[in-house]
């Protein structure tokens, strides 16, 4: 299948709606299995950290949440840009769907980070810390994009204006990533994003990677469900949706 044809199919609402419906249950099952295994591995199988004891186990919910928060933002911005440039309905549907989910995982990263910071750093929050503040800015960017979109009665206008903010906000993504290297911060440096010299042992790393994979599938499930809903809203007058509702085979 050629690239052009793939692009064309991904722009076809009924195709994407059905594909999402087919993939959804499998993605969901995969998410449940991986998150269950990752939780067991993180809480039971992984040995306590030599420095942080059992407190380090917060990593298994903190890092996947932070990863999803960032990944969802990039997805939202790319989808918004594609929707803006090529007037693609599906792309806007993806951008709308990624925002609340990404915001909730960013919130989780902030909260679990604060709860982790209290016993390890002696504080929940530090305003002078670049990693912490840039992550908070990420949450505000999500909320800004959502509010801006909601402030337009006209859906197309809301899509286009909020797309601009989403794309501009991408500058915050590398700032978050490199904040631990560019500025002195309480936050520890990268743990797994250095494959040649991993600073974490295998029995700690495997549950973390399992959890990240599980969260990614969970995110995918949420996006598929929400994109289906968005497509129904946006295509409510289309014939295939009418057939879907009346039960006639398309």
């Amino acid at each position: 299948m050629g690239l052009k044809r793939t692009f064309h199919l991904l722009g076809s609402p009924p195709t994407v709606y059905r594909l999402a419906g087919l993939l959804g249950p499998w993605v969901g099952i995969g998410a449940v299995i991986l998150i269950a295994a990752g939780t067991y591995g993180g809480l039971v199988l992984a040995p306590p950290d030599y420095l942080q004891g059992d407190g380090f186990r917060i990593i298994y919910v903190h890092v996947p949440s932070a990863y999803i928060g960032l990944m969802a933002y990039v997805l939202m911005a790319v989808a918004a840009a594609v929707g803006f440039i090529w007037h693609m309905k599906i792309a806007h549907a993806v951008a709308v769907s990624a925002a609340p989910v990404g915001a909730s995982f960013t919130f989780l990263a902030l909260v679990t980070g604060a709860v982790w910071g209290k016993p390890m750093w002696g504080t929940y929050w530090q305003w002078a810390d670049a990693r912490l503040v840039s992550e908070l800015v990420l949450l505000f960017l999500y909320l800004g994009v959502m509010l801006l979109r909601a402030s337009f009665d006209d859906r197309d206008k809301g899509d286009r204006v909020s797309a601009v903010l989403a794309v501009v906000g991408v500058v915050n993504v590398p700032i978050i990533h490199y904040s631990v290297e560019w500025w002195s911060t309480l936050h520890q440096g990268p743990t797994i994003a250095q494959l040649d010299t991993p600073s974490i042992t295998m029995d700690m790393l495997v549950p973390l990677l399992t959890m990240i994979a599980g969260f990614t599938l969970c995110f995918a499930w949420l996006i598929l469900k929400r994109v289906q809903a968005e497509i129904l809203d946006r295509e409510s007058r289309a014939r295939w949706v009418e057939q879907l509702v009346t039960g006639a085979s398309a």
Binding site: T39, L43, P48, G53, D54, G55, R57, I58, V61, H62, S65, S104, F105, F107, L108, V111, T112, V115, W116, K118, P119
Partner: peptide, 18 residues
Amino acid sequence: MGGYAAYVWTSYGITAFV
């Protein structure tokens, strides 16, 4: 949780809820 019960279970609880 080696004395970290409040922090660990709070984190996992909030995550499960969200």
